[in-house]
Amino acid sequence: MTERSWHDMGGLPAGEMDFSQHDFALWEKRVDALMTLATSRGMFTVDGLRRVLEDMGPEAFETLTYYERWIESVTRNLVEAGAFTPAELAEKLAQVKARGATYGEASLGASDG
């Protein structure tokens, strides 16, 4: 019972600073907004978001982008909060993917601004 969690990284060796920067895509901003709205409605907390991110492990941190990790965590927290069931999610995901091969095509026209 003495293992250090991967996310608790203060003081560990690491490389030089990388100053590359990017703007967020619309889908990433929507993930951020979903988190803000769900927590403001008391469905879960920022600690719930962090707990799932931590449980996803270091491989997710190294291979997925920030909001790719967030949408995983938001989804799991929403299922835990009873917002929807895994089966409802699976059915919706199948519908989304059937609409098209790109984000634009898979988005409903009404929600795509």
Binding site: Y67, I71, V96
Partner: peptide
């Protein structure tokens, strides 16, 4: 991740 974002948003 994008598909998940669309699906979760639409469900909510």
């Amino acid at each position: 991740a994008q598909a998940l974002e669309i699906a979760v948003r639409e469900l909510l």
